[in-house]
Design a binder for these strands. Structure first.
Lengths: 71, 71
DNA sequence: ACTCGATGTTCGTTATACTTTACATCGAGT
DNA sequence: ACTCGATGTAAAGTATAACGAACATCGAGT
């Protein structure tokens, strides 16, 4: 399977939020830490709902967190 | 599972785009017309990638097309 | 040296987004 | 009346996001 054409700023935003942990982010979003890790590394793209939840945790619009890089 | 907590403006935007057809939107997005119909009716939420593609067809930011209504 | 917290990673399973095929309805045309 | 284009819907199959439960590494502390 190809790499999903969507990049994200999760690692940076966690850092800027006082090194928020993957586990804590997952908890606040409602997904597991494994899911956060996979999304953060771009192993796959989150669902729209998860993306909205993640963006909200950081108080950012969705498009500040996830960037579409398709053709 | 209950209905997805994400609403959208697809029907309105198709109308405003000269009655763009579900089939044509699907073609330009890269999904079938059935998938467009299901998303439009809120039967399920699109993937992040499909959401980005749909928004781009209408030249709108993703959050102008899909609206998160969760807690 | 040893624990401990954070992260990486994999496996088996479940949920669901999406596809293909197919059939039905309905309105607009000439 | 009849076609035709647009839409609704359903079943069966495929792809993948997300889960839970492991196990492994690695750095920081005391």
């Amino acid at each position: 399977m190809a790499k999903p054409p969507i990049s994200n700023q999760i690692r940076t935003l966690r850092f800027l939020s006082g090194e928020m942990t993957q586990a804590e982010l997952g908890e606040r979003v409602g997904v597991t830490r494994q899911t956060i890790a996979a999304i953060e590394q771009g192993r796959y793209s989150p669902t729209l709902e998860a993306a909205f939840r993640i963006a909200r945790v950081f108080g950012k619009p969705l498009e500040d967190v996830f960037c579409w890089e398709g053709e």
